[in-house]
Amino acid sequence: MVRGRALVLEDVGDYPRFAGNPVVDEIGIRSYLGAPLADRTGLVLGTVCVADVRPRPWGRAGLDTIKAMAAELAERVRRREDDGDTAAPL
Rank of each mutant, 00 (worst) to 15 (best):
A19Y: 11
W58H: 14
E10G: 05
P16D: 03
I66L: 03
R80C: 07
L7H: 01
I27C: 10
E72H: 10
N21K: 08
A71C: 02
V8P: 05
R17C: 08
A19G: 05
E75H: 05
S31D: 05
V50W: 09
E10L: 03
A71I: 00
A38K: 08
D83M: 15
A61Q: 06
D83A: 15
G46L: 11
E75Q: 08
A35Q: 03
L90P: 00
A71R: 08
L63C: 14
D85Y: 08
G34A: 05
L45G: 14
E75Y: 04
R80M: 10
A68R: 10
L33P: 01
T47I: 14
R60K: 08
M1G: 14
R3G: 15
A70F: 02
P55W: 02
N21F: 05
E26N: 10
R5Q: 15
T41D: 15
D39L: 12
G28A: 11
I27A: 13
T47W: 08
R56N: 11
V2E: 11
R78N: 01
P16G: 04
D82L: 15
G4W: 05
V44F: 02
G59Y: 05
D82I: 15
G4H: 06
E10D: 14
A35I: 07
V23A: 15
D52E: 09
E81Q: 13
V24D: 10
Y15F: 13
I27D: 12
V44W: 01
D82R: 12
D83K: 07
R17Q: 14
D25P: 00
I27M: 11
V53T: 13
P57R: 15
V23P: 05
A87S: 15
A68P: 00
N21R: 09
G20T: 01
A87M: 09
E75I: 04
G59W: 06
R54W: 09
D83T: 13
D82G: 09
V50L: 15
L33Q: 03
A71G: 08
V23Y: 08
P22K: 00
A71F: 00
P57A: 15
A68F: 04
V50M: 15
A87E: 11
E26D: 14
